[in-house]
Design a protein around this nucleic acid. Sequence first.
DNA 1: CGCGAAATGATCGATTATGAGCGGAAATTA
DNA 2: TAATTTCCGCTCATAATCGATCATTTCGCG
Lengths: 261, 261
Amino acid sequence: MHVSQREAEILRLLQAEGFVAFGQLTRTLEASAATVRRDLERLESSGAIERLRGGARLASGPAGQPERLVGTPFEINRTRQAPQKAAIGRAAAALCQRGEAVLIDGGTTTFAMCPHLEGRELQVLTNSLHIVAELLPQVGTRVSVPGGAIFREQNIILSPFEDDGLARNHASKLFMGAAAVGPRGLMQADVILITAEQKLMDKADDLIVLADSTKFRTSASFVVCSLDAIDVVVTDSGIRKDDVAMLERHDVEVVIAQTDQ
Amino acid sequence: MHVSQREAEILRLLQAEGFVAFGQLTRTLEASAATVRRDLERLESSGAIERLRGGARLASGPAGQPERLVGTPFEINRTRQAPQKAAIGRAAAALCQRGEAVLIDGGTTTFAMCPHLEGRELQVLTNSLHIVAELLPQVGTRVSVPGGAIFREQNIILSPFEDDGLARNHASKLFMGAAAVGPRGLMQADVILITAEQKLMDKADDLIVLADSTKFRTSASFVVCSLDAIDVVVTDSGIRKDDVAMLERHDVEVVIAQTDQ
DNA sequence: CGCGAAATGATCGATTATGAGCGGAAATTA
DNA sequence: TAATTTCCGCTCATAATCGATCATTTCGCG
């Protein structure tokens, strides 16, 4: 069994149980104690897990919130392309004017904006409880949510009705993630997001899409809107020239976030 | 079972019951008395719990465990009358039919219902983010929220508009806390709660008030509704006979939760 | 095939968690 | 008040874990 296999297995066990005992790992991985120890060291320094005497558990997020939520698709996705998402989040946050009213759709890329919104005194409306939890401690930021049922899988609020309590709501910018972006437009993998996102789009002047560069080389099931509806795309330096050209042909402004720093 | 698991379980039991007996801990944790003792010592020195002869209870005072929430009115209030609130929460949860749609107003007493709602497959609508966070991990429970702005102080969602996205919403029961209950009716200390609670009352058939017995011997600034509007009061055995008589004169059913067990 | 780097396994001393036993303190009961 | 029960704090022995070091194996590469 190889390093990557063992690490994957450790994370799998952790997501299933929340905690793994040291002895259990040496047995299920069929590796020596020293090896397991080194695996755990590596995972800890990468920030994925937290070691305690006798075993390890998933790292509690930046806020140390209830461990109930770890192991969700959201948490797993969050670690993918993490440096790129962080850079994109910072660049997107920089687009906000002080005191502005903005909408932030759910997703791990838009979530990366949150740490950089502190002190901008924004009025944020979001359907993502992850984002709510992240923004709530920021004293200057005002947070609102639409009405509706909470979908556990995505941890977002969706209303089956036209009426979501936001009829009077309006914002200058809408920040939205994407499963994929291609010539046919912005795509999502989950059908229940479509109507919710279209409702949000009606409420905002500008649509700003956050998508790391891998999103341009893939595809997803459902088209949310065409490229013409997009005003700005924030991505990372891995984006290809022809994708930039494709976006600019549709009058989309392309912001490339620098991952360094 | 390991340290972190045991500590989490102790805190979970404490939240549900308000008090745990020493013998109960050794049995449910399947650990020796010495180990349980050491766990309690650790939790006590961290300020999370308070030990007393025969068991432990939640620390009264400004020292909850997630640092974020320390000092908030909610956390301070939560430990007041904790065993009584836990008993009231259990009794109130028992009033719910399987699969029922209920409204739960924010507050520390209504919050105490949450651990006992698991497995009842309820459809819960609440304006309290504390309750949302507590109910979300329960797989059978469906959670909805109204639209509106989030007030950091109370951690609840309030809408300044008539329209809160819940026009089509209805429930058979509304569970509500109170700052005080007296001859003039149900009282709250915070004025911004009044209109929100009146909106909720319109959506439910029955109003069930959760109030520990100390709430009958105090007063608060704002009257939300008269006693006649209340259908059931759930309280603890500390309530005085004349208060019970007062409630029954207004056709209020009184449920007295037993703290023991 | 040989070399070097990386990964793995084994060992040792130190630290820590756990369980059992004991004497004393507190609460209960007679 | 005295006897009894229960609980608490303490010590000690045992077992597991940890960090570090060193030998061995595996793998990649020329």
